[in-house]
């Protein structure tokens, strides 16, 4: 945020990034693409309700890849989780949202 505030002073580039950006993921390519697309869809659909977005992602992921997915959608949070390997995807979307999807049953 601080940098964003500083940015207008520079006026060189005030670019708002909205594309999904994967911060950390060990999913398979197919699963990751699915997860990212799903996150984008959910966050765009429920842009004002992170809970519903998370629920949608979780339920769809459960359907597609088996149960016990966990999804966190939010703008500012910290987490420390245990996940089953090859099932985590931590991505940013819309420039201000962080979405963490993982599976642990």
């Amino acid at each position: 945020m601080a940098e964003e505030a500083a940015a207008p002073g520079i006026t060189t580039e005030k670019v708002i990034h909205t594309y999904p950006l994967i911060r950390h993921s060990d999913m398979s390519e197919e699963m990751r693409v699915e997860a990212v697309e799903l996150s984008v869809t959910a966050c765009e659909k429920f842009s004002h309700n992170n809970e519903l977005a998370a629920r949608m992602v979780k339920e769809t992921m459960d359907k597609k890849f088996g149960p016990a997915f966990h999804v966190v959608v939010g703008e500012s949070y910290g987490f420390e989780i245990t996940y089953e390997c090859t099932t985590i995807c931590y991505l940013y979307f819309g420039g201000n949202q962080a979405i963490c999807i993982w599976k642990c049953s």
């Binding site: 950390h24 939010g74 500012s76 949070y77 910290g78 420390e80 989780i81 996940y83 985590i88 931590y90």
Partner: peptide, 12 residues
């Protein structure tokens, strides 16, 4: 196999 992951999501 399981692993741990932790991060902090902040606007900055």
């Amino acid at each position: 196999p399981r692993a741990n992951f932790g991060a902090t999501a902040l606007q900055c």
